[in-house]
Amino acid sequence: MATHPTTAAPGADRAPHGRRVIVAWLVLSIVATPLVAIFLGPILPPGNASVQGSGQVVDNTVLTATITPVFCLLLVFFVYVLTRFRAAPATALEDGPPLRNHNGIQVTWIVVTTVVVLSLAGFGTFELLQNGSGGGQGPSPVAVPAGADHMMQVQVIGQQWNWTYRYPGYGGIETQDLYLPENTYVVLNVTSLDVIHSFWAYALGVKADANPGVDNVAYLKTKGPRSFEIRCAELCGLWHGYMYQTGHIVPQSQFAAWIKQQQTLNASIARYMPKYSRSYYPDPQRRGG
């Protein structure tokens, strides 16, 4: 059935294409992978404000370094094929030799891709289960770091359109700003008073949905003093785009002074504050609804 071109017998091209591609790929991968890991890795998201944030940087570095050889293979293959097998202008179109089954290539391909995907899945799961990796784990967290009972608690409250914070360990006072002491394990209890928001402290590696009536728990350990951005990552109405703040990680002494000042300021409202709770059900509005 197949008509072979008459000009050349099939398989006449005996150049070692496969070996050339593999050698070029190996050389490129050996050079590129360490470069990617060493130079690109540290600037990958999300940043190093917390142990969890740094953990995510490491995870992203591992993922990027792992896919570098895959990317190199595709690159070498395409460049080689496009240059080596490019038809000269004005040659008659002719069919190449037929593709035949090659067990070795197929088995290698399936084994290699399976191993890569499963190891990355295993690595990701291991990383996630250590401490939740900064993600909101819902009201009954599974990945609980050691010593969670003694961690500093901060409740994050979303409302159209701002975040406020309650510190149950300091008399349940509420603040407009998020201050955290340095090198401290913190448990965030994220909730909302109205619609769904999402607390996203990018450099901390923390992202947790703020659902009304739900206590969404996320763990993080702060590193050295710095500021970080806080955004709402769930479209929540008119001022969603303005629902951002700057949070602060400060030295222990500065935190102590700040929280004391907040306690003094909150005195005038203390008797009206609801008892600290994992979530709140504001009274039905008299006029709304």
């Binding site: 409250i157 406020t164 300021l265 909150n266 009206y272 504050m273 008299r286």
Partner: peptide, 19 residues
């Protein structure tokens, strides 16, 4: 007329002279 705050914390004046 009054309809009440969702978050009682906002009943404290802040960011104004003398709070």
């Amino acid at each position: 007329g009054a309809s009440g705050l969702r978050n009682p914390y906002l009943a404290r004046p802040q960011g104004v002279d003398g709070n």
